[in-house]
Design a binder for these strands. Structure first.
Length: 475
RNA sequence: GGCUCGUUGGUCAAGUGGUUAAGACACGGCCCUUUCACGGCUGUAACAGGGGUUCAAAUCCCCUACGAGUCACCA
């Protein structure tokens, strides 16, 4: 059975690249009836952030990535938090020392720094300490780390995405397995846990590609079975650089805050680095589970295009069942529009195809509370065949006609305006265009003159039409 | 710098020796329409460069260029 794991370190926010990794791990497991496991990698005590775990739980929850085992729900291979597994790693590290695959190192920081300055890798200064020296140092409580001994030769591994990769072991440092605080390094904890948790497919960003040989050397040193590796290409920002907080949205939380819908985000990032066999581009999570194939993962990095995400978001808004959309948008209308006798349902209907984000809906109707300052030239429209002159004349007729209306329904208003068209031998646009401009003061509105007049009410409508008259006359 | 990986339109991408080199976003045009949006139709635009192999190369090989990753007691 396939088992994958998502192993974030609790840094306090969910990078979009990490979320995609989690998504693919989830999909690889689920598309094969496997298990998806969550493991928290908190071995760096210097980077602990409060509530960071909660953000991970919440993100996966909102994204719909349900894990089968994890810190908060348990499982047969716990604990699922690395800081709670400290003793396990030490035990395995000592086992490697026994078999000569690892060794104690007592070198201090100054010594290491000086090597580093000369661009040298670790010189194995402590590799051949005698047993007595080691015992003496340990007894004297000299701080130590445990290093992996990298043998000569070459290491080859196979990645499902990148194929076979061979690296000369001379490129590899005798890496630290156990730090001087007694906690394991990421690489070591990762190998031990993936083995103990019976992870079959190791899925991670390709920044780990070059350290993979070290992993294999560890698996070999233990005599453990090497997992299937799946390295994922990077996600870059619009400048082709790493996604960063500075340049806007780098995290899932940022995107949510900007108004992107979780399903739209998931759908979009699923397509960054993977493509389906068909041309389908809208996927629910269950559909992804069905369609996902490791073989159609891409090798080259992808640029995160907010533009396309925005489009996808607007598509998700359009697809929402109306009641759901209405419930989501209603609070925004109530908070942002002062006029209270409005038919919010109608506003919602008019909004759904016109916005990229739910919160944008009220701004479509900003002309209701206050007529904006507008340029008189808005009345001129070539295609509508309107000019400053005929707009003035026509508006006079409209004011007259609407002023005589006793009932102010959309049907009544529409009939009146249509009458103006017919009775004066005009084109629709010649009446409706100036009316809408006068009523809204905007060249684009989410509805026509009739609806706007009805929303504003009779007296406000007449006022605005008369105001337009003075503008045109003063011209 | 060493090592490793990558390179199809502005962006995401299909493509696994023979195609008019898909599709989507963005951009332009047209239609629909009392504006805008939606919807429909349509246009511009790509195999990084150079050598091979082959009857035939975006697809295979080599070199170059460019980009990226990595070389920590970070993950």
């Amino acid at each position: 059975m396939i088992r994958t794991r998502f192993a974030p370190s609790p840094t306090g926010f969910m990078h979009i690249g990490n979320l995609r990794t989690a998504l693919y791990e989830y999909l690889i497991a689920k598309s094969n009836s496997g298990k998806f496991i969550l493991r928290i990698e908190d071995t760096d005590q210097n980077r602990l952030v409060a509530d960071a775990e909660k953000i991970i739980f919440d993100t996966l929850e909102i994204a719909g990535l349900k894990y089968d085992e994890g810190p908060d729900i348990g499982g047969d291979f716990g604990p699922y938090i690395q800081s709670q597994r400290k003793d396990i790693y030490m035990k395995y590290a000592l086992q490697l020392i026994e078999s000569g695959k690892a060794y104690y190192c007592f070198c201090d920081k100054e010594r290491l720094d000086s090597l580093h300055k000369k661009n040298l890798s670790y010189d194995r200064h402590c590799k051949n300490l005698s047993t007595e020296e080691i015992q003496k140092n340990l007894a004297a409580k000299i701080p130590f780390v445990i290093r992996q001994f990298i043998p000569d030769g070459q290491t080859t591994f196979k990645d499902e995405v990148y194929g076979e990769i061979t690296v000369d072991n001379s490129q590899l440092d005798d890496q630290i397995l156990i730090k001087s605080d007694g906690l394991p390094t990421y690489n070591f904890a990762n190998v031990v846990d993936d083995h103990l948790m019976q992870i079959t497919h190791v899925v991670r960003g390709c920044e780990y590609l070059s350290s993979t040989p070290k992993y294999n050397l560890l698996y070999d040193a233990f005599g453990w079975q090497i997992p299937t590796y799946i390295h994922l290409p990077l996600i870059l920002d619009e400048n082709g650089e790493k996604l960063s907080k500075r340049r806007g949205a780098a995290s899932f939380q940022d995107l949510l805050q900007l108004g992107y819908l979780p399903q739209a985000i998931i759908n979009y990032i699923a397509l960054l680095g993977w493509s389906p066999e068909s041309n389908q581009e809208f996927f629910t999570l269950p559909e992804l589970e069905k369609e996902f194939k490791i073989s159609s993962l891409s090798k080259s990095p992808a640029i995160f295009d907010l533009n396309k995400l925005r489009w996808m978001n607007s598509e998700y808004i359009k697809k929402m069942p109306f009641d759901e959309f209405y419930a989501a948008v209603l609070p925004y209308f109530k908070n942002s529009i002062k006029k209270s006798d409005l038919d919010y349902k109608q506003l919602a209907e008019m909004s759904q195809t016109r916005i990229n984000f739910i919160y944008e809906a009220p701004s479509l109707f900003d002309f209701i509370d206050k007529l904006p300052d507008y340029d008189v030239n808005l009345f001129v429209h070539k295609k509508m065949k309107t000019t400053l002159e005929n707009s003035l004349d026509i508006l006079k007729i409209i004011i007259d006609k609407l002023g005589n209306l006793s009932s102010w329904t959309q049907d009544d208003i529409k009939k009146s305006l249509t009458d103006v068209v017919n009775e004066n031998g005009l084109k629709n646009g010649q009446v409706f265009w100036p009316a809408r401009i006068a009523l809204s003061g905007k060249d684009a509105t989410p509805c026509g003159a009739v609806e706007i007049a009805q929303m504003l009410g009779k007296s406000e409508s007449i006022n605005r039409l008369k105001f337009a008259l003075t503008k045109l006359e003063g011209n």
